[in-house]
Design a binder for these strands. Structure first.
Length: 797
RNA sequence: GCCCGGGUGGCGGAAUGGUAUACGCGAAGGACUUAAAAUCCUUUGCCAGCAAUGGCUUGCGGGUUCGAGUCCCGCCUCGGGCACCA
């Protein structure tokens, strides 16, 4: 027996080596009749290595993949590295190494940590977004976007992180701060590349319908896209100054029914009309200097100050000019105020202080008239011909007469350039003669050049701008000297299509072979953190829909089923972080209790998508579970034994429940079912070979190493992953002798043993024979008896 | 403010409208041992009781139902997303 003690270190190493040697998890190029693409959001190989929270999602997909393979699926289950971007670059700068060197080292560490946990990844398909053979295609997709007019140079003020020294996309800003480093973001007018994601707002919204994703992610995306239907109404503008030509400024409103209550008009400081009115060539404003000062002040404010609703609203009245309420014909004052956002709607609003809190606040401060036009029943008052109509109806009628319906989105175009070194160079050449010229596709990839210093240039330009040899090139069109684009792409570029690369990782001729793409896509199950709801998952869907329209992919959506992995907190309830010194390294856990225990523990902690705190003490349960399985197997192997009814019921119930729960990502209940099953087995001391084999098969996706070992001990030459997944035998699932509760008025008073599908009359007779039942009925009239066959009996009196 | 998701023992949590507290951790007692570890057995929601048993209990207050953790209405509270978005 001593020789046969469970030695996790020895067993786990043995099987991990064998899987590699035998290529156990090599995926076929093309799947057979049943395919499944099971994908993890690939990690960012940071310098800190993995902590025990990272593998949770990977364990889940691994368990799922292993079960599906045994169920006869060809499973594509790959892993790779999202290695471009700021963290790698900042790490490299801090540690004074080249980002490439740092990334290589980090990847090696990550990979070793992952392999220690025994994942069934097909490492032949490993990808790395910083590999020129990979980012060649990232650049290629950019060129396709450019060709379709979806990539463009823009000069509008963008979010600028003063610490990271780069522009940021809207999605990279959280509450006015850089999502990476927490610095307060500034507005900076600068040249940049942007992608017209806004053109896909409607398609991305439509694609969400019926997608089997968590509700919260769908809601987040809808929120982010922020569709809002309303009305555009033009307001005439007139001047005091003789000879100045009147104009028309459109506003967007979702409350056209309140048009008669519009008592003033507001433009955002960035509004083109304002910008023109304060420039030197125009002379219509009586207080031009004052307005100019206000506009400049507003421009200096950070995004936080600009959008803080609690701050007192400010504005300046425009002198010598007024707007006309098209409904009432009244002249109303015009203001410039920074509570009106430039980038939403038309950047101008019709202010209705009676029915809008912000307008009300502003009107109070500047003593503007407040005119109520909708009463408390929602019926229009004081609104000319529309008086007496209810608001919903009035919205339509007023829109018909004074404006037109329009749709607005909160979504803004994707600022796609970064002024940093460690990213894909944007494949564009600037020629004095021909302007913007895309790099010809046969010249891709535009390789990131070697540099001495990869720190930001400090000028708001990428460090690539300093490499004169690289910047200077010739125009592909006219052959004259020209300059390369020196901005790089954001971190999200490479991850927006990586799932396609796994399908065809070595392809040098095309993004992905059409045959393979059609065979493997879409991703069947995609697992990752909920924090990607409005970044990666938005960008990837955008690119995918675009590629679908080009006919390069066969499905309109890339990811079918999506599961969010819940965070693992440290034992102290805080996030695991080097800073708090509370990080648990999976290597240590694997060394002390084994990968199988770690895997079962992480799946058993609680519902998969829920945040839970790590507990080293709680790992003893899963560890003991494996040891008990081991001992039961040692006792049972080689013995002849007939199982009791209880054992047959337990194992078949487990087969059914574990199969269902694993498929539905309810790993915690799958494991508790297996524990219950083992508890039943142990009462018998030994079990039949058949039941033992079924049980080992069931656990094998969760604890593959120990199950391989036991499978081998049972005399199987082939590995357990080649075995077939067990199917429950229904005949054992129907217990013949059942104990049901007897209730009196809904309270349990007794339990009686009945045979399966016993007649109600017989059950009633037995119930009435129970002293504790009659005691509670005594003296009362039985009014009703509810009998749920094989479940319960309830006597009402 | 708006939109999602939660609130169940000492702890993590389980429960198609049908015995609430499965499974695991922790704790207490016992067996084995010179002793410890490991293992095994027993107990473990709260209150009363020697016990049989009874009463109470799923954030709070109502409701529907023979029966509610689960469904409906109104609150409280925690977590997450969005937010001067007109």
């Amino acid at each position: 027996m001593a020789d046969n003690a469970y030695n996790h270190a020895k067993i786990e190493k043995k099987w991990q080596q064998r899987w590699v040697k035998e290529g156990t998890f090599t995926t076929p190029e093309l799947p057979g009749a049943k395919k499944s693409y099971v994908l993890d959001m690939f990690p960012y190989p940071s310098g800190e290595g993995l902590h025990v929270g990272h593998p949770k999602g990977y364990i889940a997909t691994d368990v799922f993949s292993r079960m599906q393979r045994m169920q006869g699926y060809d499973v594509l289950h790959p892993m790779g590295w999202d290695a471009f971007g700021l963290p790698a670059e900042n790490y490299a700068i801090k540690n004074k190494v080249h980002p490439r060197v740092a990334v290589e080292k980090n990847i090696a560490r990550f990979k070793e940590q992952l392999q220690n946990i025994g994942f069934s990844y097909d490492w032949n398909r490993e990808i790395n977004t910083t590999d020129p053979e990979y980012y060649k295609w990232t650049q290629w997709i950019f060129l396709q976007l450019y060709k379709k007019g979806l990539a463009y140079e823009s000069f509008e003020p963008i979010n600028w992180c003063p610490s990271c020294q780069t522009g940021l996309a809207n999605e990279d800003v959280e509450q006015g701060k850089c999502e990476r480093c927490g610095s307060v973001v500034e507005k900076r007018p600068m040249r940049q590349w942007a992608l017209k994601i806004t053109e896909y707002a409607e398609k991305m919204l439509a694609g969400l319908e019926g997608l089997p994703w968590p509700k919260s992610i769908i809601e987040s995306q809808k929120n982010w896209i922020g569709k809002s239907e309303g009305t555009q109404i033009g307001f005439p503008v007139e001047f005091k100054k003789e000879g100045a030509k009147p104009g028309l400024i459109p506003v967007f409103t979702t409350r056209p029914d309140t048009l008669f209550g519009c008592t003033y008009f507001v433009l955002s400081p960035e509004h083109l009309w304002v910008q023109l009115a304060i420039d030197d060539t125009h002379d219509v404003l009586e207080n031009k200097d004052e307005v100019r000062r206000y506009v400049m002040q507003a421009a200096k404010k950070t995004e936080i100050d600009r959008t803080d609703a609690t701050k007192e609203k400010t504005g300046v009245k425009l002198g010598g000019v007024w707007a006309v309420n098209p409904a009432t014909g009244e002249k109303i004052p015009m203001y410039v105020a920074d509570y009106v956002l430039a980038h939403y709607g038309t950047g101008a609003i019709m202010a209705v202080p009676a029915h809008d809190e912000r307008d009300f606040e502003f009107a109070k401060k500047y003593e503007l008239p407040i005119k109520n036009v909708v009463d408390d029943r929602g019926v229009l008052i004081d609104s000319g011909e529309f008086t007496g109509i209810n608001a919903e109806e009035a919205k339509k009628k007023i829109t018909e007469k004074f404006g037109k319906t329009t749709t607005n989105y909160k979504l803004r175009d994707w600022v796609f350039s970064r002024q940093r070194y460690w990213g894909e160079p944007i494949p564009i050449i600037h020629c004095e003669e021909d302007g913007i010229v895309p790099v010809p596709e046969d010249q891709l990839p535009v390789v990131l050049p070697e540099v001495e210093h990869y720190e930001p240039a400090g000028t708001g330009e990428s460090p690539l701008a300093l490499i004169i040899d690289w910047v200077n090139t010739t125009c592909p069109k006219c052959g004259k000297p020209a300059k390369r684009e020196t901005n790089t792409m954001p971190q999200w570029a490479g991850s927006s299509w990586y799932y396609l690369r796994y399908i065809d990782p070595k392809n040098t001729q095309a993004l992905v072979s059409a045959e393979k793409e059609k065979a493997w896509m879409p991703v069947n199950v995609y697992v990752g953190g909920a924090e990607h709801a409005t970044r990666h998952l938005i960008y990837a869907r955008f690119w995918h829909i675009f590629l679908y329209e080009l006919g390069l992919v066969s499905t309109p959506e890339p990811f079918m089923h999506l599961e969010n992995v819940g965070l693992i907190l440290a034992e102290d309830g805080r996030k695991m972080s080097k800073r708090f010194g509370n990080v648990v390294n999976p290597d240590d856990i694997v060394a002390s209790v084994g990968a199988d225990t770690l895997r079962i523990y992480e799946m058993f902690m609680g519902p998969f998508n829920q945040t839970v705190a790590w507990s080293t003490a709680s790992m003893s349960g899963p560890r003991k579970f494996i040891e008990r399985l081991w001992r039961l197997a040692q006792a049972s192997i080689g013995q002849e034994h007939d199982d009791s009814e209880a054992v047959l019921f337990a194992i078949n119930k487990a087969i059914k429940k574990v199969t269902e729960d694993t498929a539905a990502f309810r790993f915690n209940t799958a494991i508790s079912t297996m524990m219950e099953c083992l508890n039943v087995f142990e009462k018998e001391r030994i079990i039949s070979r058949k039941s033992l084999e079924n049980f080992i098969l069931l656990i094998s996706p969760y604890a593959p190493h120990v199950c391989e070992e036991l499978w081998e001990q049972l005399g199987h030459a082939d590995g357990i992953s080649q075995a077939s997944w067990p199917i429950a035998d229904e005949q054992y699932l129907e217990e013949q002798n059942i104990i049901i509760p007897v209730q009196v008025n809904g309270k349990v008073r007794a339990e009686i043993a009945v045979t399966r599908d016993a007649m109600q009359a017989d059950v009633e007779k037995m119930a009435m024979a129970q002293e504790n039942v009659t005691k509670f009925i005594d003296g009362k009239e039985v009014r009703k008896i509810i009998y749920v066959p094989n479940k319960l009996l309830n006597i009402v009196c």
